[in-house]
Design a protein around this nucleic acid. Structure first.
Lengths: 186, 186
DNA sequence: CATAAGTGGATGAATTTCTTCCGGTTCGCC
DNA sequence: GGCGAACCGGAAGAAATTCATCCACTTATG
């Protein structure tokens, strides 16, 4: 998507675009994928006109948000794997960052519940695959270490993370993640 | 609310009323408190007319749903406490039942995020208090037994339960609760 | 079986949301 | 600094969704 046009975007326009994607992600996560476009625009500090010019329909916006989420998750997983001594610590760091930046997306960050047109996007599928590989790597490594329960799957962890992130943040979030990590530890 | 009228309700009307409350709870939990009244009616297998006659506005419906949730949670907590040998087992049973019947409500089953007019309802406040006492009793007893972590609060558990219940049910739900209970165990 | 209680869903009003369009502003290059 | 192209905000009409009533018809109950 917009592969070439992003380079030719004027500086202020690019800034606006980034603000829109960020605001849209938070709103999608808190209020679902149907939030009015005008709300997204307001949250991004931008006019509706600007929003529609950059993302002619909701699908394009969703795609952009999803791409951003997967790319950031990939980056975080990579950093965690590289920067920690063992896989379990890396996995913990990754999940904490995931929660902290609220990189949620629709139902489960696996594209379930996404409009078919969006899920079909090639770039998005590739980004998703890349992230899944990194995540899976972290999980199997932690299990190989004997630090992560054997009976838990990637999907289950992903679903849980999305539960945690979805909706308005509450003061209990941190404790819940903490207890969950305890439960995942072996 | 409708304290006296419930007794004089014709048999079929009472059945419809119960179906409405049940359907409304599931829809509120899955799609938020703003689901169209018509959807509630359809899910309950009833016409909009019937719905509006029984619950003249959304607030009354919300109140009825909340009352039902608190009453059922109270009953379940009581049964669990009475029917299990120790508090930790009782707490587990209670939480499993809570999840199984999807007794969720808005944000956190503590009335946060409820319209002020609903939260102000006296019957509802009393039902909520009653339930909170039972729940708190279960928690402190389990902690006294040394079976439940000391650093976790009622609110945190309630928020977690609502996270779990909110949205469409997924096959991962059971495992997530299981792992969480493990994390809560001491 | 008489009748009061209850029912469904069509309908017009009210509200929300979409999307375009354009006068005015800002960036970036000379 | 000045100019043109790129960009911006938000007003406004169209379209879609939701509300809430009303009444002809059905059903439980004494």
């Amino acid at each position: 998507m917009t592969g070439t046009s992003m380079k030719t975007l004027r500086a202020d326009a690019r800034r606006n675009r980034e603000q829109i994607v960020e605001a849209a992600r938070l709103l999608f996560v808190e209020r679902g994928p149907d939030v009015p476009m005008e709300e997204v625009a307001r949250a991004a500090g931008v006019g509706v006109g600007t929003l529609y010019r950059r993302f002619p329909d909701r699908g394009e916006l969703l795609t952009a948000v999803a791409l951003d989420v997967f790319e950031r998750l990939s980056a975080m997983a990579g950093e965690a794997a590289a920067g920690e001594p063992d896989a379990w610590t890396a996995l913990q760091r990754f999940l904490k960052g995931w929660a902290e930046f609220r990189l949620g997306l629709l139902q489960d960050a696996l594209c379930a519940g996404m409009p078919a047109a969006v899920a079909a996007n090639k770039d998005l599928q590739r980004a998703r695959e890349t992230w899944l590989e990194q995540f899976e790597g972290l999980i199997t490594a932690a299990q190989a270490e004997g630090a992560l329960r054997e009976d838990v799957t990637l999907t289950e962890i992903a679903v849980f993370m999305n539960m945690l992130i979805r909706g308005e943040p509450t003061p209990a979030d941190e404790m819940i993640l903490h207890v969950m990590l305890d439960g995942l530890h072996r």
